[in-house]
């Protein structure tokens, strides 16, 4: 039950993009087309879970040496290496996804959602399994935000004529993101 609540809360209430405003760069950058948005979302889900799986034990090592303050540095190091690894694997086995993600895959390295979820897991004192599910939920939340945004932007794309000239392009995208974010406020307090 706790696991389901955690996942649902990460998707709807504490959505990393729409409620905590982390990871805006890929959210705005890759959400033009639905398929690349889904690809990016899935990549983030994957990276988040793998990064959590790797960083949680590392935090225990750091704690045992009493150097928990090195958390940020070490996590970034580990996540960067992981993303490189994943990039190599994608290039080998799913070249089309590798091409679709393009520059955004290396950008996951410095994506604050990934670092954010790793640090949150430690700060909240979650156990290993719960951490993994928390990361999974956070990734799904990111995926959901990407899909919603890509869907709305896809509809906008063909109907630029209805948008006032000064708002075309990035401004209307930011406004769309804001409205999406406001709509997610309706979920606040659903899960405790």
């Amino acid at each position: 039950m706790l696991i389901i609540t955690t996942i649902m809360s990460m998707i709807l209430v504490n959505n990393y993009v729409l409620a905590q405003f982390l990871g805006i760069c890929p959210f705005l950058g890759v959400s033009k087309k639905l398929d690349s948005a889904i690809g990016m979302g899935i990549a983030v889900v994957f990276v988040m879970v793998v990064a959590t799986a790797a960083t949680w034990p590392i935090q225990q090592i750091l704690n045992s040496f009493n150097i928990g303050y090195l958390q940020t540095v070490v996590f970034i190091l580990v996540i960067a290496a992981l993303v490189q690894l994943i990039e190599m694997m994608l290039k080998k086995y799913i070249p089309s996804l590798h091409k679709a993600l393009g520059i955004y895959l290396p950008l996951i390295t410095t994506n604050c959602t990934v670092l954010g979820v790793c640090i949150t897991n430690i700060d909240e004192g979650y156990g290993y399994v719960l951490s993994l599910f928390n990361a999974f939920g956070a990734g799904l939340g990111f995926l959901l935000a990407m899909i919603l945004m890509a869907g709305v932007r896809g509809k906008l794309e063909g109907n630029e004529a209805g948008v006032p000239v000064p708002f075309r392009g990035l401004p209307i995208t930011l406004i769309t993101a804001a409205i999406l974010s406001v709509s997610f406020m309706g979920f606040s307090g659903m899960f405790q």
């Binding site: 590392i58 090592i61 750091l62 040496f65 150097i67 090195l70 540095v73 070490v74 190091l77 580990v78 960067a80 290496a81 490189q84 690894l85 190599m88 694997m89 290039k91 080998k92």
Partner: peptide, 24 residues
């Protein structure tokens, strides 16, 4: 101590990446 630990972690990551670059 902390420097050593971070360096070791860095080397482990580098090792994994080197192997991966051959495998993949």
């Amino acid at each position: 101590e902390p420097v050593l630990i971070v360096v070791v972690i860095g080397f482990i990551c580098a090792g994994i990446l080197t192997i991966a670059s051959k495998v993949f």
